[in-house]
Amino acid sequence: MILTHLRLSRGAPHDTRWLHQRIAEAANEPRPLWAFPRPGVVITQTALPIRSVQWATIESQGEVVCCADGAAVQLALIANPTRALREHGGRGTRTPLAEAGWDDWLRHKLAGAVD
């Protein structure tokens, strides 16, 4: 897998659908993995290298380095911890959780995937 750090060009739309389509085209794969950690910066993980594009500058690109078994890793997550509040047997309304419930929500969502 190839990890690429892109810096968006001035005037590039800050539209996630547009960005997803451009990354998919540049990577020649329909479902690339990417993140938008801060304005103007995009990190992608793709099977093939991203080719040069007009809408961004490639800051760095290289093979993903895997960590050793048992190594501690630190993750950053953008999430929306919510729960459905059901009234009168209906479907329920998504309601944000208080910060005190975030860790339990995350453990539940990632159960079996992360130790």
Rank of each mutant, 00 (worst) to 15 (best):
V64H: 05
H14T: 05
A56Q: 03
A79C: 14
R17S: 07
W102A: 05
D15S: 02
A27P: 00
G101R: 14
W55P: 03
W102K: 03
H20L: 09
Q45V: 13
R7L: 13
S60R: 12
S9W: 10
Q54G: 15
A76R: 15
T57C: 06
D115R: 12
Q21S: 09
P13M: 02
E25M: 03
E87Y: 07
T82A: 03
A111F: 03
A71H: 11
R38S: 10
A24H: 00
G11R: 08
L33P: 00
W34C: 04
E99W: 08
A79Y: 05
G11W: 09
E99V: 15
G90Y: 02
G112M: 03
L19K: 02
A98S: 11
C67K: 11
L97Y: 09
I23Q: 01
R86Q: 12
R94K: 11
N28K: 15
R51N: 08
G92V: 13
G101Q: 15
Q21V: 12
R7K: 14
F36E: 11
A24W: 01
C67S: 14
M1D: 05
W102G: 02
Q74L: 15
Q74K: 13
R7N: 12
I78A: 11
L19G: 04
A98Y: 05
F36K: 01
A27S: 09
H14M: 10
G89D: 06
L77P: 01
R83A: 12
V65Y: 01
W102R: 03
E29M: 13
P96R: 05
S60Q: 12
E59F: 00
D104K: 09
R38K: 10
P13C: 01
T93I: 13
V41R: 13
G62F: 04
E63G: 06
T46R: 03
M1R: 08
R91H: 11
T82F: 09
R7W: 07
G112K: 07
Q21N: 13
V42C: 05
A113L: 10
T57E: 12
T46M: 04
